[in-house]
């Protein structure tokens, strides 16, 4: 019943500095994959991450559709392995260093400016910043964050042992992350805006089959209630227009993701949702500047796609640097 994991528990900050062949912004699956290729190829590679490396993938409890792990693997374990693989070939990594601006200086030199007022120089730069959970923007959401409202069921789920939980959003993320919560919570109610779930059938079947779950469709959540702690969620039944109250101690929000691209808004082409447009070689319109993974337009948010993007960028960069 217990499992024991060994992960790297210290912030990474070692760097040589100087001019890098590649500076990668974001150490999720996409960025780390590029690094595996470029560092292994002998190119000087740096990854900057605003948090710890691992990206969104590290916060998911169990990944079942990544090839090579027939029993599935925890997101953190998988990301730990991928990071070790990148480091093995000499990738330098700095964590807790948020990039604020990307400044193309001339062909073959792009500057990356961070919140900590550091400037890193790369011959090429890769944007692999992924996305962050969307907020609902309703009363109570910010006020009760950390007081029962959470965006990470893997992290905070165990705090609601024997308690009632509402999960807002019954798409892939909501169902997938809600399933482990069913193991310890008293009851889990899934509230979905749409009249159906867009999640994979296998996830829907698992949730429906569980005796502690209720799936409720066609409801618009309007407020998270509570003073010192969450007491429940108010939602409107979109069919009857009736307001209903769902008592809960914990509320997990899984209503989609929006890309981290504000810092390059004026530099590259974004689609109307803010995702970066590239060509099939992952190139943005700025020479030497690439975008990969969840942050790229028209990508399904999946690990294998991000990893594939990472590879494509690495190969394109090799060619670009050879011709520079």
């Amino acid at each position: 019943m217990f499992d024991f994991k060994i992960t790297d528990s210290k912030p990474k900050k070692q760097t040589e500095g100087g001019l890098y062949d590649i500076v990668i912004i974001g150490g999720g699956p996409a960025g780390l994959t590029t690094a595996i290729y470029t560092a292994r190829d002998g190119m000087k590679t740096l990854i900057l991450d605003r948090e710890t490396t691992g990206g969104l993938a590290a916060t998911t409890e169990l990944i079942e559709n990544y090839p090579g792990f027939p029993q599935g693997i925890s997101g953190m374990d998988l990301m730990d392995r991928i990071r070790q693989q990148a480091e093995r070939f000499g990738t330098e990594i700095i964590e807790f260093e948020e990039v604020r601006a990307v400044v193309p200086v001339e062909e073959g030199l792009i500057e990356v400016h961070t919140e900590g007022d550091q400037v890193f120089q790369g011959k090429t730069v890769v944007i692999a910043t992924g996305s962050e959970p969307k907020k609902l923007g309703i009363p109570g959401e910010d006020e009760l964050y950390g007081k029962g409202v959470s965006y990470c069921a893997t992290c905070d789920g165990p705090l609601f042992k024997g308690k009632d939980v509402v999960i807002i959003g019954a798409g892939n993320s909501g169902l997938q992350e809600g399933i482990p919560v069913l193991e310890y919570a008293n009851h889990v109610t899934f509230l979905e805006f749409l009249a159906y779930s867009r999640a994979e059938q296998i996830l829907q079947d698992r949730v429906r089959a569980h005796e502690k779950s209720t799936l409720i469709f066609n409801h618009r959540v309007i407020e998270i209630k509570g003073e010192r702690a969450v007491t429940g969620v108010s939602a409107i039944d979109r069919e009857t227009n009736e307001e209903k109250f769902f008592p809960a101690d914990g509320v997990f929000i899984y209503v989609g993701y929006s890309p981290y691209t504000a810092f390059v808004r004026d530099l590259v082409d974004l689609n109307k949702w803010g995702y970066i447009q590239t060509d099939e070689l992952m190139r943005t319109k700025v020479p030497g500047l690439y975008a990969i993974g969840d942050v790229r337009a028209d990508n399904p948010a999946q690990m294998t796609v991000s990893v594939g993007d990472g590879t494509k960028a690495a190969l394109a960069i090799r060619e670009y640097l050879q011709n520079l």
């Binding site: 210290k10 590290a58 997101g75 789920g157 165990p158």
Partner: peptide, 17 residues
């Protein structure tokens, strides 16, 4: 902390250091 929280060892180890 909780045992399932991937980022918790960071906070814990920092306090210990």
């Amino acid at each position: 902390v909780t045992p399932t929280c991937p980022y918790c060892p960071r906070a814990a180890v920092l306090a210990m250091e």
